[in-house]
């Protein structure tokens, strides 16, 4: 057995498989619950559905009024992604390629920012936002998302920009290209993986965020999916098939994004990018 264990044999693979089953099990429970009729679910809470009740999804979407929530979440994610790209790409570029006094301090500061809890600034920010009529505004929340997600984006993209050889940039500048032209023609294509990683992670964080919309958006017309899902329990306390269907719908956009781009997610969140 020791031999098997050492050479990456059967024993190791069984443990890995058990880990996979463990990761999959709650998802199976949710998926099968979401596809059962109410009677079926009550009689048989853990087994496979007797017949597939896709109408749960239609009902969850309509009764739960998820359409507006999906629109709001989509707008928040799109706004945050766009805003983060517009502010973080130039900053990351400057911190990687333009030497200036205080640049390493700024890198340290942005790293520090990635560890600051929202609890540290949420109260004065809420009071200020309500004074400036930025609560219950998707635009206001997008501003917050840009501010709190851009430090991570700056550090991540900076690490990609730093890999671009200076000679390449200098050659372009000598050829008479402006800083901006050099950026678009040379830097951007090389840094594309970093940009894509930033896009998917910021989109995911915006879609998933709960505390900030819970605090800053309390009118139903502006609520995103996460906050609406948090309110479902009181509303449908017994209709677990509908709650599970809504939960799966709410996770679907990020799940699809992950299905296509899981490498970017894992590289961006668990790779060396996080550590700047």
């Amino acid at each position: 057995m020791t031999k098997n264990f050492r050479s990456g044999g059967l024993f190791s693979q069984i443990i890995l498989l058990l880990f996979a089953l463990y990761s999959f099990f709650p998802l199976y429970i949710a998926l099968s619950a979401s596809l059962k009729s109410r009677a079926d679910l009550f009689a048989n809470p853990l087994g496979l559905p007797k017949e597939l009740y896709f109408t749960n999804y239609v009902q969850a979407f309509e009764v739960g009024n998820l359409k507006q929530a999906f629109f709001n979440s989509g707008l928040l994610a799109a706004g945050a992604v766009l805003g983060v790209l517009l502010t973080a790409i130039p900053a990351a570029y400057a911190l990687a390629k333009i030497p200036f006094r205080g640049s390493s301090f700024l890198v340290g500061y942005y790293f520090f920012c990635t560890t600051i809890p929202a609890q540290l600034f949420i109260i004065p920010l809420y009071l200020a936002f309500s004074r400036f009529c930025l609560t219950n505004s998707l635009f206001g929340l997008i501003l917050i998302y840009i501010a709190i997600f851009s430090p991570f984006a700056i550090l991540l993209m900076r690490s990609y920009f730093m890999n671009i050889p200076n000679e390449l940039l200098e050659a372009a500048l000598i050829d008479g290209a402006s800083m901006l032209q050099a950026f678009w023609r040379i830097v951007f294509p090389v840094a594309r993986p970093g940009v894509i990683t930033t896009v998917v992670i910021v989109a995911m964080w915006s879609w998933n965020n709960f505390l900030l919309p819970l605090t800053f958006l309390n009118q139903e017309r502006v609520m995103p999916v996460t906050v609406r899902l948090g309110m479902l329990m009181g509303r449908w306390s017994a209709a677990w098939e509908l709650i599970m269907a809504s939960a799966i719908l709410g996770a679907l956009p990020v799940a699809l994004l992950f299905a296509f781009l899981h490498r970017r997610f894992i590289a961006g969140l668990a790779g060396t990018g996080l550590k700047g």
Partner: peptide, 28 residues
């Protein structure tokens, strides 16, 4: 040891789900 990298996205998948969704699943 095993180089079975295909497991990695499976383990990672729950990480990217909204907490509220996971909360509802575990409440069930």
């Amino acid at each position: 040891r095993t180089k079975r990298e295909l497991f990695q996205p499976i383990y990672f998948f729950p990480v990217i789900l909204p907490v509220v969704v996971i909360g509802l699943i575990w409440r069930y």
